[in-house]
Design a protein around this nucleic acid. Structure first.
Length: 598
RNA sequence: GCUCUCGUAGCUCAGUCGGUAGAGCGCAUCCAUGGUAAGGAUGAGGUCAUCGGUUCAAUCCCGUUCGAGAGCUCCA
């Protein structure tokens, strides 16, 4: 819960003898200075909360005047003045009634609300200079110990995170131990901005989103489609190798199907409205599960048939509120790399282990090597399935993670009502974490769809069901890949692998000949025989981030040796056609290339 | 959905304190045939997102709708 006094989340005691205070203490102190600066400009501002957060701090204000970017600059200047004044942070406690009296006197209704709700025996306050705040602390001894600050953005935030409450203005800022660390942080932010998949998607002509088509609906351009096709081909081959069967299922289904599955009860707010066909209501699918289960149910299964592994690149549509849409990362129509494993109890653990290893294999192929796993267990309230099944499933998940030798954390009570799960987070080239993969037990759907198999005694038995997605959504994963590689796709993924450049346009026939030869080896090649100078052409394909450029001129034609320029290198390497083909094929076979260092 | 900010050529962006607009890249044509990050010239392209209001006059001011961005909330 993030709506308490931010200070409550700071548990570290400051050690004043240590020159390096905990970063949260510095940031939290900086948030007080921020509030102090804002109050100095707007004495009427009502204070919300001001905690330290992962990459900095914020403070919420109820203030009628909108805070502009220029104002933000002024506030930051003021903050630096306050810091230089070396104001001491003084701490004192008050009983509840006195605390409320003090905050009423300061005209701070939100603080009064917090005091009332916290219900403690005494309330802690911090004071520095003219500024006073309800706060558990701890703080720096004085403001000069806040070494480097920067204000970042202003945005809206609901009081206590609830849409029902008033929207306050939130100022985000950050603080670091020294100017160098602050600079590094700003550099990282800028780096993230530079490799924003929305910009790269436009520059590299990978995809677009068209207003006339609709928000959150992706148009895959030829180059993006090419990359997607490569991803999907690899994915399909890998799934066949791992003994999955691949399915295709329709994009909509009758109302009764979604009633049975429970989606109309539990998920309707994310589903698009009904389509009436021949007096029957149909719904566009937000998930693939019911279709896969229907395939399972299309005939009777023996215990000998299990496990059944059905996978599909299934395109689903979900209503997402307009404000949450974001490039490829959050869309309204997307393709899940979905699978459902239906198995016997005695197969559960090995299935989970296999899925986990398979998942790691696939993620590594795409250049991700840093993983964190989270096991979410049975929620306290309303969960279906008996405790034995939950225990069995949870230990299967834990054993699988252990045997894969992966670090994991347990999120107690964090599972869905229908079963426990493992989520896997991957770290990208600039240290950001993304959750793509999820492996979930489902004790619900087998019940609802009355799934069964015939056991060795000839009796009907309920199978176990595991739902999993490895890349998550192809759209989102593509967005993450673009940013991970900064648009410089490794050779096996690059939409164009080789760009052939002629020095002079009269060498076109030789270029075409080479292209034909490379194409015969499944190498994706384009030719530029335009009348631009070679320097201009090289510049163009560096910007297009093509892995290989081959320059064809008089010398090459005479010697029969190719001049090859690799992306990221300013030198040309001489190699024969077969050497080049061999090198590219080698990269394509091995995959898994890491992004270049930032 | 909510708060704030924004919407000018295919792209990135100037600009007009109210008198219907400009650059660079890209595109087209021509000249140039040049060896490793931009050769030169000419030209085409815009109801200044939409609808309405104020005004002699709106791209600019006010309001509406649509869309985008940063957040909140939610989530793959």
């Amino acid at each position: 819960m993030n709506f308490y006094l931010g200070s409550l989340s700071v548990s570290t005691k400051p050690d004043m003898s240590d020159k390096r205070l905990p970063i949260d203490v510095i940031r939290h102190s900086a948030s007080h200075v921020l509030a102090q600066a804002v109050i100095s400009f707007f004495p009427e501002a009502k204070l919300g909360i001001g905690p330290a957060i992962e990459n900095g701090f914020y403070y919420d204000f109820d203030l009628d005047t909108p805070i502009t970017d220029e104002m933000l600059e002024k506030i930051e200047i003021k903050m630096n003045e306050i810091i230089k004044e070396k104001q001491s942070f003084k701490h004192f406690d008050l009983p509840k009634d006195k605390a409320i009296e003090l905050m009423n006197q300061k005209n701070q209704p939100y603080k009064v609300e917090l005091i009332n709700d916290l219900n403690l025996s005494s309330y802690s306050f911090y004071e520095n200079g003219p500024f006073l705040d309800l706060c558990k602390g701890p703080h720096c001894e004085n403001t000069i110990r806040i070494p480097a600050i920067k204000l970042l953005t202003v945005s809206g935030a609901y009081w206590r995170g609830s849409e029902k409450n008033k929207m306050l203005q939130r100022i985000y800022g950050t603080a670091f131990h020294d100017k160098k660390a602050l600079k590094q942080f700003i550099f990282q932010q800028e780096e993230a901005k530079k490799r924003d998949h929305r910009n790269l998607g436009k520059q590299l002509q990978l995809f677009s989103i068209n207003d006339d088509i609709g928000s959150g609906l992706i148009l895959w351009h030829p180059k993006g489609s090419r990359v997607r096709h490569i991803i999907e081909s690899y994915w399909r081959d890998a799934h066949f190798d791992a003994n999955y069967e691949l399915l295709y299922s329709p994009h909509l289904g009758k109302e009764d199907l979604w009633k049975t599955s429970g989606h109309l009860d539990c998920y309707q707010e994310n589903m698009y409205t009904n389509i009436n066909i021949d007096n029957q209501d149909y719904y566009i699918k937000p998930m693939n599960c019911p279709f896969h289960l229907m395939v399972y149910k299309s005939h009777q299964h023996s215990y000998r048939d299990l496990p059944v592994r059905y996978a599909e690149l299934g395109t689903v549509y979900r209503y997402e509120r307009s404000g949450v849409l974001h490039g490829l990362m959050r869309v309204r129509g997307f393709t899940q790399d979905d699978a459902h494993i239906i198995c016997r109890k005695d197969q559960v653990e090995s299935e989970i282990t296999d899925v986990l290893n398979f998942c790691v294999q696939i993620l590594k192929t795409f250049g991700f090597h840093d993983f964190k796993t989270f096991i979410s267990t049975r929620p306290e309230e309303k969960a279906i399935g008996d405790q034995q099944d939950w225990d069995m499933a949870q230990s299967a998940l834990e054993n699988a993670v252990k045997s894969a030798d992966m670090d994991y954390e347990i999120d107690h009570g964090g599972g869905a009502f229908y079963g426990p799960k493992i989520d896997i987070k991957i770290k990208d080239a600039i240290g950001r974490e993304w959750q793509c993969s999820t492996i979930q037990f489902d004790f619900n759907l087998p019940e609802k769809f009355d799934m069964s198999y015939i056991n060795s005694e000839g009796n009907k038995e309920r199978p176990y069901m595991i739902h999993r997605a490895l890349l998550g959504s192809i759209e989102r994963f593509f967005g993450i890949l673009i940013e991970h590689y900064n648009g410089k796709f490794p050779t096996w993924l690059a939409p164009v692998q080789v760009q052939i450049l002629s020095i002079v346009d009269k060498f076109s026939p030789q270029c075409e000949e080479l292209q034909k030869a490379l194409k015969a080896h499944n190498i994706r090649t384009n030719i530029d025989t335009s009348s631009d100078k070679i320097g201009a052409k090289i510049r163009r394909y560096i910007k297009e981030k093509v892995p290989y450029m081959i320059i064809i001129g008089e010398n090459e034609i005479k010697t029969g040796v190719l001049s090859v320029r690799k992306l990221g290198s300013n030198d040309t390497i001489q190699m024969t056609e077969s050497e080049l083909i061999c090198q590219i094929q080698n990269e394509v076979t091995h995959k898994g290339q890491l992004p270049t260092k930032v």
